[in-house]
Write a protein that binds this DNA or RNA. Structure first.
Lengths: 221, 221
DNA sequence: TTCGATTGTTATGGCGCCCTAAGAACCGAC
DNA sequence: GTCGGTTCTTAGGGCGCCATAACAATCGAA
C-alpha cells in the first residue's frame, strides 16, 4: 500500500487524463504519454512497461496502454489530492487562480493522507476545484459531467461554464479576466470568419471576444 | 539560484543543527552527520565532499566540515520553511502538535517561495514555531536564545519554558500532556535520587514528574 | 506492393544518492 | 614506538528515471 513514486504517479495521472479527454475508450499511445510529460518516447516506453509489471496498466505491444482498476484508483488518488490542494490554495491562502495548478502539481506527491483529510475537512469536502473540475472521493468516485466545448457551440446558444482546462497559467489568467469562470452564464453571439474569435456575452452584461484556442479550453453544460 | 536537492538540503540542515546544539564552534564530524540522517558514514562522507565542491561547506580531511556563509543561508532557508509549515499546520489546520514535524520535514523541500511568503503573511510573520523554536527571517537572521535545559536546573529554580526538542513525536506528546509547552512557568521542586524523575510545578498549579531524558528536551530561559 | 516516414522498442549510459567492502589515517594503551 | 580499535575515505555496485542511438514494426502514398 506504499505510495508510488512521484514519477509513477505522474504517468498514471497522464494516462488517466488522456483517456478522459480523448474519449475514445481505446488505448493511450506511448507518444501521447511522452508528449504529456515532456519526456522522450523511449523513456515513456520504459516506464509504461514498468507500470504494466506493477499492475497499474495493461500494455499491448505497439498499441498502447489502458489503466487497470488499480491504476485508475491510484490516478484518482493523485487527482483528488491535486484538486483539493488547488482549492485550498485558492480559497484559504488567496493564491492566484493561475498559480495554484503548478504548486499543486508538486505538492500532490508529498502531502500525507492525514493532511489531505484535514484539508478536505477544512474545505467542507468540496465537489469541484476552482477551475470547475470534479474532486474524486477517497473511494475513487468521480462525477463525470458530459460537456461541450465553447468552441463547438453554434451562434445563439446559451450555456453555463462548467470547467476550464488548467494546464496553461496564461490562458487561465486570460479567461479569468474575461469572466469565463465556472458557473458563468454565457451566450454565444457570433463567430468571426476565418478562425477569428467568438464573441460571447458573459453573465448577461459584458461582451468579450474569445479566440478559438481559448474557446476550446472552456467546457460548458 | 536553483534550490538544492532535498538530500542536499537535509545534509545542510543537519550540519547546521549539529553545530547549534553541540555549541563547540568547531567542525562537525562525518559520523555525527551520518547518524543524524540515518545513513552510513560512507554515504555521508561522499555527500560532504560534494557539499564542499558546491561551496556549502569547508571540509578538512579527517576532521569534519564547517558551513560556509552560503551553506548557512541555505540551511536557514530550509529551517525557515520547516518552522513556518509547522506553525501553519498546527494553528490553521489543527494538526496535532506531535505530527507537524514529520509533515513539515517533507513539505519543506517542495513548497515554493511564493507559497512560503503567503503562509508567512497569513500567520503574521511569527517569530517562533509551536515548539518554541525561532523562525529565521528571509535574510537569514535567527534569534539565538541562550538557554539551559530543564535537566540542568537545581532544585528550587523557577523558569519559563523557551522551547522543546521536536525530533520525537512521542516525547512531544508526553511533554504536551504535562503542560510543558513554550511559555509555561515552571518551578523545579526536587530531583529523585539515582537518575529518577524531576518533580516540577507547572504554571503554578499541577505538579508533574519528568524523567531525565524528557527533561533534557526542555529548554528554559 | 514496395519504400520512406512515422511510431515504438531495446540497448546503453549518465546522474543522484544510497549501500557494502576494503583500505588508510588517527587515537590511546602499553 | 607499536598495535588494536575507531573513524574516515575510496572503490565499486544498485536503483530510479532520464537521455541518445540504433533497430523493428507499422502505415500510407505512389
Amino acid at each position: 500500500m506504499d505510495r508510488p513514486s512521484p514519477a509513477v504517479q505522474d504517468y498514471l495521472k497522464a494516462v488517466y487524463q488522456l483517456g478522459e479527454s480523448a474519449e475514445g475508450g481505446g488505448p493511450i499511445t506511448t507518444s501521447q504519454v511522452a508528449e504529456a510529460l515532456a519526456v522522450t518516447t523511449a523513456s515513456a516506453s520504459n516506464m509504461l512497461k514498468k507500470l504494466d509489471q506493477m499492475g497499474y496498466v495493461d500494455q499491448v505491444k505497439r498499441q498502447g496502454v489502458e489503466l487497470t482498476e488499480a491504476g485508475r484508483q491510484a490516478a484518482l488518488e493523485v487527482i483528488r489530492l491535486h484538486r483539493l490542494l488547488e482549492t485550498y490554495l485558492a480559497t484559504k491562502l488567496g493564491m492566484p487562480w493561475d498559480e495554484v495548478h503548478r504548486e499543486a502539481e508538486v505538492l500532490e506527491h508529498h502531502v500525507s493522507e492525514a493532511l489531505a483529510a484535514r484539508i478536505a475537512e477544512e474545505l467542507g469536502h468540496p465537489e469541484r476545484d476552482p477551475h470547475g473540475h470534479p474532486i474524486p472521493t477517497i473511494g475513487g468516485q468521480v462525477a463525470t459531467n458530459p460537456s461541450r466545448r465553447l468552441s463547438e457551440l453554434p451562434d445563439g446558444s446559451d450555456a453555463v461554464v462548467d470547467r476550464v482546462d488548467d494546464h496553461d497559467g496564461a490562458l487561465l489568467r486570460f479567461l479569468f479576466e474575461r469572466g469565463l469562470v465556472p458557473d458563468a452564464r454565457i451566450v454565444v453571439l457570433e463567430h468571426a470568419p476565418f478562425g477569428g474569435p467568438i464573441s460571447v456575452r458573459v453573465d448577461g452584461d459584458r461582451v468579450v471576444d474569445v479566440p478559438p484556442e481559448a474557446a476550446r479550453a472552456v467546457h460548458v453544460e
